[in-house]
Write a protein that binds this DNA or RNA. Structure first.
Lengths: 227, 227
DNA sequence: TCCCCCACTATTGTATACAAAGTTCGAGAC
DNA sequence: GTCTCGAACTTTGTATACAATAGTGGGGGA
């Protein structure tokens, strides 16, 4: 694989899994040594990740892991709701039976995972959920929508959504997937749009409610190394 | 100014003003010589422009000026309508009198330019129009919305919109600005959203109708240098 | 004559060296 | 004791050299 792509994947993976704390400063030399390439591909990868909003890149100061305020969370879910409900609307008009079948399988698999051990299921559910949402996005068949949404949903915050879900939250979420799916099967654009919007607002609510028995993550101040 | 920013501005400017034909291959060495920096900042600028969708960057093949099909135009205006009407909705709820006054001035200035010579007024109108739309976007006060919209409106295609406008088109367009402005003054979110959407759909129509007495631009096949 | 393959050239990809900017920390003035 | 200035150090920014890859064209064989 090319060095730039390798660097991109490695840094992105580290960010998504939360290896670097919010506010942390990513030194190019250090990343280069860890990943085993020179600074040049590292810098290109950082630029790309910056453009995607996964990290912040400031001139002469390098890259830092962004922190997400409650306001950011609100804005992000609002935009997700806007774009993904539009995506669901388009998909309802265009989706074919093969994709519908595939989405049905994904929904089934997520349901089955509800009874798995908590630790094991998290990554699997995240992956299936991403595939479900992405499947609808692809079915919407609007090429510009894909990179646009990437700037909103690819952030670690969103990808970690399910860590905050209780068993009840999961059941609700999966039931909402079923709603969206049925709307798509019926090729009912209004329903699909509304169901997707409802699904994402519910997701936002999980984020913004205070978690029981602990500080809410948005309040956590980072143990920053610099800045 | 830093070399990377210099390269970014220069290349972006050239793309926006149409110096490079659609499909053209941008060679790094050549750009470096023209702009007077080395290939390193050129590459960083190209990556950034690629992320913004202004050009396409393919591994081992470098950067090319994208071509826009009729379908692309449709998708882009549809997404603009989605995001900017949302922007207008938010702005209607939050905008203050200072910004309203500023938008009013911009609308006045655009009206005055309607009687200027055609060649002179194009750049000025484009600039004022951008400021008007951007003013609303900023008033919407959603930080994530700004980079998101950049990926849709910053493309040369959109920035050149007014080249296709007749005198009548201009008058219509400016009248629609007045509509949006009045809706904002009234803090009427529904109206603002609808007026902005109507404005952008009308803009799309100018693009997609066949220009009188010639082939439509989307049909033009490029005299590509490579690829 | 046509087609395929290989060498050659043009162009991009990566590493490294040096320049510039930012940060840190201690010495000196007050 | 505290504040300020600046020198040393750290980190990023840019240039350049070399490596790898993709396009090009000519020669040989069928």
């Amino acid at each position: 694989m090319a060095a730039t792509d390798q660097a991109y994947d490695a840094i992105r993976q580290a960010l998504v899994t939360g290896d670097y704390p919010a506010g942390a400063h990513l030194r190019e030399e250090e990343l280069a040594a860890t990943i085993g390439v020179s600074r040049t591909p590292i810098r290109e990868a950082l630029r790309r990740l910056d453009a995607e909003g996964i990290l912040k890149f400031v001139r002469n100061r390098g890259a830092t892991v962004p922190e997400w305020s409650e306001r950011d969370v609100g804005e992000i879910f609002e935009l997700r709701a806007l774009l993904e409900s539009y995506s669901a609307r388009l998909a309802a008009e265009r989706i074919d039976d093969d994709v519908l079948a595939r989405l049905g399988e994904l929904a089934d698999q997520m349901d089955e995972l509800r009874i798995s051990p908590r630790s094991k299921r998290f990554d699997a559910i995240t992956e299936l959920n991403n595939q479900f949402h992405r499947g609808i996005l692809v079915a919407a068949d609007n090429r510009r929508l894909i990179p646009l949404l990437a700037g909103v949903v690819q952030i670690p915050l969103v990808l970690q959504t399910f860590r905050r879900y209780t068993a009840d939250d999961l059941q609700h979420s999966f039931q909402q997937h079923r709603d969206v799916l049925q709307a798509l099967r019926n090729h009912d654009a209004d329903w699909a749009e509304a169901a997707m919007r409802a699904h994402l607002y519910a997701g936002r609510n999980v984020f913004l409610r205070a978690p029981a028995g602990g500080r809410r993550p948005a309040d956590r101040r980072p143990t920053t190394t610099r800045q």
